[in-house]
């Protein structure tokens, strides 16, 4: 993070109540630079596996995750799957999103719930190496689902991956715990439906301030 020019001075007038700040940020960087000066988004070493066996096999060859990591992550992803997988009211709608043969009933997937709710089958899982523990609101193991066009996505639908097997650096925001409701927590990615809906009322005016 860039540190702006700041200035601080000792209090020259301790005798009476001071009416001014001790320290002030004096620099304006401009919109482009300010965005860059933002603390860069955290990244996480991550790996995706189609199933538990693939993870364990990588662990046996000295991967960054142990066989125990694989077990724990697989269990966590299964739990998230039950909690937060997308749910549909028909097999047909589910398959439109996830492809033919990629869906089942909630009862089949979770052992509870009804036969009239449909969920995608788990098609892999993503493990993030969260050194020092996961942040609040993060889940280091995420279930993956097929998309209708043959790629993979997470439970919240906020990211798409080309494959369910591989490793790389991912943004920490991709390990945000998926919400059970439609609303997504701040800073998660989402698909824009439209832009430009703000600012139109003031189009003819040079400034918004006063």
């Amino acid at each position: 993070m860039t540190t702006p020019a700041t200035a601080a001075r000792p209090d020259p007038a301790p005798a009476r109540r001071r009416k001014r700040s001790r320290r002030v940020t004096l620099t304006i960087l401009g919109a482009a630079a300010f965005a860059l000066a933002g603390c860069r988004e955290e990244t996480v070493d991550a790996a995706a596996f189609p199933d538990l066996a693939a993870c364990k096999s990588a662990a046996a060859q000295g991967g960054e995750f142990s066989a125990l990591d694989c077990e724990v992550a697989f269990r966590e992803a299964q739990t998230l799957h039950a909690e937060a997988a997308p749910r549909y009211d028909s097999q047909q709608v589910c398959e439109e999103q996830h492809g033919e043969g990629s869906c089942g009933t909630e009862a089949q997937a979770t052992g509870s719930g009804g036969g009239s709710i449909f969920m995608p089958l788990i098609a892999g899982y993503l493990i993030g190496n969260m050194l020092g523990g996961a942040r609040a609101g993060a889940a280091p193991a995420q279930p993956l689902y097929r998309t209708q066009d043959g790629r993979f996505t997470n439970a919240a639908g906020t990211a798409t991956y080309a494959s369910n097997s591989g490793r790389g650096q991912l943004s920490a925001s991709q390990f945000t715990r998926p919400a059970a409701t439609a609303g997504k927590p701040p800073m998660t990615r989402a698909t824009p439906a439209s832009r430009g809906g703000f600012g139109t009322s003031a189009a003819s005016r040079p400034t918004s301030g006063g």
Binding site: A35, G38, C39, A182, P186, T188, A190, A193, R195, G197
Partner: peptide, 25 residues
């Protein structure tokens, strides 16, 4: 954490939330 986006670049997600210029909620 402070993030800046121009007003005109703010978007609306398919879920009805406001998004910044980088599609973040």
């Amino acid at each position: 954490g402070a993030h800046y986006s121009d007003l005109e670049s703010i978007g609306l997600s398919t879920g009805g939330q406001f998004l910044d210029a980088e599609d973040r909620v």
